[in-house]
């Protein structure tokens, strides 16, 4: 058996009965749906922070997509300058620049795993499985970096000490209550992870006996 054949693993037998056909198709469907969810998630918000204060009755919010931020960014930047926080646009510039291509690549790898019926499929799908966790870790890194590196000459530096804003849940900064929530894009990415894991599991179930 060539190395390539070992890598792609066995093909589904042509004359399987209906139950077997389902067993072979199921992992493809799960992985395919996961790829679509990941693709769709690129155009949806992943994370949102809402700030509540008495003088902003409808709140201020920023929504983070994989490649951009929307919402009251300018207003939040304007407020942040009082505590010496750098403008949000300066965070994760590299990540935002490459993210669309990177996620698209993850999607292609997941689709490739549909055709690879060996344990290598897991390796191909691994980046997509890690993706939402990488996103959260990167968010946390930047939140921590921005929160802990406040300009010590800022007007309110004596009253607002460096802090790490919560990545999920609520916190207080000055008169602002901050509420951070995961958004639909991130949930879709998590759902994709679940589908990928399930897909890989059923793929092994279907093909392992053939390889033996």
């Amino acid at each position: 058996m060539s190395a390539f054949k070992r890598f792609v693993g066995p093909r589904a037998p042509a004359a399987a009965d209906e139950k077997q056909q389902v067993a072979f198709r199921l992992p493809n469907i799960l992985l395919g749906v996961a790829a679509v969810l990941l693709l769709v998630s690129m155009f949806l918000p992943y994370w949102k922070m809402t700030l509540h204060a008495p003088q902003y009755p409808s709140g201020l919010s920023v929504e983070v997509f994989v490649n951009r931020m929307t919402g009251d960014v300018a207003e939040i930047d304007g407020l942040n300058h009082y505590i010496g926080m750098r403008p949000l646009g300066e965070a994760a510039q590299l990540e935002r620049a490459v993210s669309m291509v990177a996620v698209a690549f993850l999607v292609l790898l997941v689709l490739a795993a549909v055709y690879v019926h060996s344990p290598w499929a897991a390796l191909l799908a691994l980046p997509a499985i890690l993706w939402p966790f990488i996103f959260i870790a990167d968010m946390y890194y930047w939140m921590r970096h921005f929160g802990l590196n406040l300009d010590p000459t800022a007007p309110l530096s004596s009253s607002i000490k460096p802090f790490v804003p919560p990545i999920l849940g609520s916190g207080m900064v000055g008169q602002f209550e901050t509420v951070a929530t995961f958004q639909i894009g991130l949930w879709l990415a998590f759902l994709a992870v679940g589908l990928i894991v399930a897909g890989l599991y059923y793929q092994r179930r279907a093909y392992k006996p053939l390889a033996a």
Partner: peptide
């Protein structure tokens, strides 16, 4: 035998998700 039993499981899995 395993092979014939599994096709029912994914629907169980999806049902639980739903």
């Amino acid at each position: 035998m395993k092979l014939t039993r599994t096709p029912n499981r994914p629907f169980l899995f999806l049902t639980v998700l739903l």
